[in-house]
Design a protein around this nucleic acid. Structure first.
Length: 625
DNA sequence: GTTAGGG
DNA sequence: CCCTAAC
């Protein structure tokens, strides 16, 4: 096996489990709504309901806690690593997951805002710049199966990064569209040099200095992607594994009408995911037709809880529910629907063969997390047409019990669709801000190197390079090394011996298919510095001073490809500021006071040095003049 | 390509 | 984090 060869995994789509649990906090957060309004949900409500449930778990307050822990959130299941047979699945953290069922009133009350509606009411428009995302159409219930895995369809194709750029784009959102591949807007691609992280702690390997300019091929892809899609980047170094963007804004959640229950049938169930709600699981068939479906509650049982008790089952794909339509008529005219799963747009991941399974998991998790946490909008499609007018009621839109429920679909769309390219071919998928992937620096190969945190002891600060940071891998599967040892025969191809010192690095970048010229650079995603990184930075600055950011970068962040020297400089700037303000005014992950003290000390020291330097030069310049 | 600062 | 000026 080629050590540095990269394996590309093409995912045709991830099924994101529907998040369960609606809750009281949601209620609080939601806009106050009168009881009477309950029966008047309009399309907007539906959207908000779905979005809220999908993204937030009130309880887990994503923003504050680190959403991502090292614990595995994804499990790699397929053992056959032969090309073409790689599979990944996302597992729910909790074993028992529930399907989420949303119930909203189809009734609509006032037609508010006629003007508004007129403007967009002609809803059906296939063009949406959002290119795609995941789409869920109503379908019948399927049951879940436990089996996790896998791409219902064909095995994930393996594609080279270059090819990713070529993925055909399909502007049409119609589920039935003939352009299957195109629908996926997200691609995760690893970038090479700079973005990808194959940080290797080993001295020799780590030598390469971060370069801004990616290789041609990568660059091209990256650019393409950049334009409009989400970018996914893994975050890794810190053991804390904080969520990149803690601020997931909670969408408004509907109050009670949500029933959940679900089974793990997603292709990729999340396992232990913290970001999102726990408990949801879902499966979906990779197809465009999602699995979201309307579920008809038993008549009479207005309250759902008991309504969908036993839908369990199968794997998903198709389990039609007889009588679905008929039963839909609930007395309160509520439309109950269950979204089995959302399909996440295609992710494209490139990872070195030498990367560990753990890193792969993390990478995938990061990618998925980014997508979900990046802010999504839910799109509603009826009959394959996108409903844009949020003020319309379900009834007006055609979402009612007596309508063909299976014609309802949901899509996940990047929330901030930046400037949809005007003309363009319709394909303008948005790329959420995303950015560079991160390196996964995992374990310090050399035992002698201090692990983060133990820095003081180590005499040589140099060792603080993040590349040496160790990242714990809890539940991860055996490292490749282990595997190779234990795993005998069969496939061994991919999991191979990993040099002891190699650090896996993965870069995940969402890509987007051919985007037009519109390559407006996307803003990189925000990646808060972890305490460990701050520690490394402080240590390096203490030694090198504040005017040598490039050196600081090389010394302490050589393996953190996403941290440029400018970033480090900026971080230092903010650290100095942070150290000067009162603790109450500080935000984000708290930086140990000790570090802040060192920041001030170092800053003062080097400022003084700088001043001295200038004094020395002053005379000289005067003389020259 | 780096630095330094403002935004 | 981005953008720029300046080197």
């Amino acid at each position: 096996m080629v050590l540095q060869k990269r394996l590309d995994y093409g995912f045709n789509g991830y099924q994101v489990p529907a998040t369960p649990r609606a809750t009281r906090s949601a209620r609080r957060r939601g806009t106050p709504r009168k009881r009477s309004e309950e029966n008047q949900m309009c399309a907007f409500d539906l959207l908000a309901t779905v979005a809220g449930k999908l993204l937030l778990d009130p309880e887990s307050s994503p923003s504050s806690s680190n959403t991502s822990s090292d614990k595995d959130r994804c499990t790699v299941v397929n053992q056959d690593w032969q090309d073409g047979n790689k599979a990944l699945k996302v597992e729910p953290c909790n074993q028992g997951s529930c399907d989420r069922i949303f119930m909203v009133s189809e009734q609509f009350p006032q037609v508010h805002d006629e003007n508004h509606s007129s403007k967009e009411s002609s809803l059906p428009q296939n063009d949406d710049q959002s290119g795609f995302t995941s789409m869920i159409t109503t379908s019948n219930c399927s049951e879940s199966s436990e089996d996790p895995v896998v791409w219902d369809g064909e095995p994930p194709a393996i594609v080279s990064s270059d090819s990713s750029a070529k993925v055909p784009f399909c502007g049409d959102h119609n589920p039935q569209s003939s352009c299957p591949a195109s629908r996926d807007d997200i691609k995760v691609v690893s970038r090479d040099d700079d973005e990808n992280s194959s940080g290797c702690t080993h001295p020799n390997t780590s030598t390469k200095y971060f370069k801004r300019a990616p290789r041609i091929g990568d660059r091209r892809i990256r650019k393409i992607l950049a334009s409009k899609h989400w970018k996914v980047s893994p975050r890794l170094n810190d053991e804390t594994f904080s969520h990149p963007d803690g601020d997931i804004k909670p969408l408004y959640r509907s109050r009670k009408d949500c029933y959940k229950r679900q089974r793990s049938q997603m292709n990729i169930p999340f396992k232990k995911r913290k970001l999102f709600d726990r408990g949801s699981g879902v499966k979906s068939d990779g197809g465009i037709n999602g699995d979201g479906f309307f579920h008809s509650p038993e008549e009479g049982t207005g309250d759902a809880t008991g309504s969908f008790p036993k839908l369990r089952g199968g794997t998903g794909r198709s389990c039609s529910m007889p009588g679905q339509r008929a039963s839909f008529q609930s007395r309160d005219s509520h439309v109950k629907l269950r979204i089995k799963s959302f399909r996440v747009p295609e992710l494209f991941i490139e990872i070195p063969e030498t990367a560990t399974v753990g890193s792969l998991k993390r990478t995938v998790m990061e990618a998925v997390t980014e997508i979900l946490g990046g802010g999504l909008h839910i799109g509603v499609l009826v009959q394959g047409k996108k409903v844009r007018d949020d003020s319309k009621t379900l009834l007006q839109t055609g979402i009612s019990h007596d309508n063909q429920l299976d014609a309802l679909g949901f899509t996940l769309e990047p929330s901030r669709s930046q400037s949809p390219p005007p003309l363009c071919t319709g394909d303008s998928p948005h790329l959420l801000p995303a950015d560079a992937p991160q390196p996964l620096a995992r374990y310090a190969p050399n035992p002698t190197i201090d692990h983060q945190g133990t820095s003081d002891a180590s005499p040589e600060p140099h060792e603080t390079n993040l590349g040496n940071f160790v990242e714990s891998d809890h539940d991860s599967a055996p490292s490749p090394t282990d595997m190779s040892a234990s795993k005998s025969t069969t496939d061994s191809k991919a999991l191979v011996p990993v040099p002891a010192m190699s650090v896996e690095a993965l870069a995940v970048v969402p890509v987007h298919r051919k985007s037009k010229r519109s390559e407006i650079a996307q803003r990189r995603i925000r990646r808060p510095f972890s305490v460990a990184e701050v520690e490394a930075l402080v240590q390096a600055v203490e030694k090198l001073g504040t005017g040598r950011w490039r050196d600081v970068k090389l010394r302490a962040f050589d393996n953190a490809k996403h941290r440029t020297y400018v970033d480090l400089k900026d971080k230092w700037k903010t650290l100095v500021h942070t150290a000067r303000i009162s603790p109450q005014q500080r935000r984000g992950e708290p930086v140990p006071q000790e570090l802040l003290d060192r920041v001030l000390t170092a800053h003062a020291y080097w400022s003084q040095q700088q001043a001295k330097q200038q004094l020395k030069q002053q005379p000289e310049t005067c003389l020259l003049l």
